[in-house]
């Protein structure tokens, strides 16, 4: 087979194999390793300067406080510079708007600029059902029952129309996603719009609400019996024998022992530490700026 033909075939195959493989000469895509080499190569005329890593180590709770700074673990789409630029934008936005820490199960109040509302703002209170995405695409859903009808609204965390994010009650639940609230009693999803915020002492551990709800009658929105939920009970009463057997058959109990799966879907510890120390450095910098601002002289 001629060399040229081999090369043509090689260029047809998507060479996104291992990080440490051999970069094929004629391929259309570059390995991460080769790209990084070229960015820092001596021979390039716009060589990227080596950055000094921030000297401070971020506190351990930063990983839970700022999970949106950790990038998507899909290695096919990752790039160091995209993530860097994204983090810059996120930190700039955080300097303008205070985005507090919250988890699925916390009760939030969000004020959004609305061109159609009188006063041009709109306030919604609800329990956070889910928090998805990372980086600038981080989003969360709030659920509340208003006038006997359940309402859910999806908000993008870094959307520039969000005026205020208040955490009225900071707590966690037994599950990461609370979509089952749609099929439970509506009283568990009702929250008063004029609810008083519950103070959370800074530094204290986040309380976990152990409440276990009883699921409502069928039809259900999703197959709750196949999701290993800890915050719901009473599923077996509504299931038929066939369905229970099918659930057992399709269950994957070995998933929790799958180390490679968790490894593939997570960011390496060293890298996440480096990213979070950047955030910590920026927070300290902002704090210093606030302290250095002299108070106004009132004569």
């Amino acid at each position: 087979m001629s060399v040229f033909r081999r090369a043509l075939i090689a260029s047809n195959i998507r060479n996104l194999e291992c990080y440490c493989g051999v970069q094929k000469r004629f391929s259309n895509t570059l390995f991460d390793g080769t790209l990084e080499k070229h960015r820092r190569s001596e021979l390039s005329h716009d060589r990227e300067k080596t950055e000094s890593f921030p000297p401070f180590e971020a506190p351990k709770d930063y990983k839970k406080k700022y999970p949106d700074f950790l990038p998507n673990a899909d290695w096919k789409k990752r790039d160091r510079i995209t993530e860097k630029l994204e983090r810059k934008d996120m930190l700039r936005r955080r300097a303008v708007l205070n985005i507090p820490e919250f988890y699925p199960g916390s009760i939030l109040a969000i004020t959004v600029s609305d061109p159609y509302a009188p006063g041009k703002y709109n306030r919604f209170v609800g329990i956070c059902i889910a928090k998805n995405g990372n980086g600038l695409r981080t989003s969360f859903t709030l659920r509340n029952v208003v006038d006997n009808i359940g309402v859910e609204i999806l908000y993008e965390l870094y959307n520039p129309t969000i005026q205020k994010v208040e955490v009225l009650k900071l707590e966690k639940r037994l599950d990461e996603e609370l979509y089952y609230l749609r099929d439970c009693d509506p009283k568990y999803s009702t929250f008063n719009f004029n609810m008083e915020p519950v103070q959370h002492p800074p530094g204290a551990p986040i309380p976990v609400n152990d409440i276990v709800l009883k699921i409502g009658p069928r039809p259900w929105n999703q197959k709750w019996h196949r999701q290993n939920l800890k915050g719901v009970e009473g599923l077996d009463e509504h299931l038929r024998e066939v369905e229970k057997k099918l659930a057992e058959k399709t269950a994957e109990p070995w998933e929790k022992y799958d180390i490679m799966k968790t490894y593939r879907n997570s960011i390496h510890e060293e890298e996440s530490e480096r990213i979070l120390s950047e955030v910590y450095e920026k927070n300290l910098h902002n704090q210093k700026l606030k302290e250095n601002r002299k108070p106004l002289k009132m004569d």
Partner: peptide, 11 residues
């Protein structure tokens, strides 16, 4: 630009 203040609509 993310440095700018939050987007608000004119009254």
């Amino acid at each position: 630009q993310f440095n700018d203040p939050t987007l608000m609509y004119n009254l």
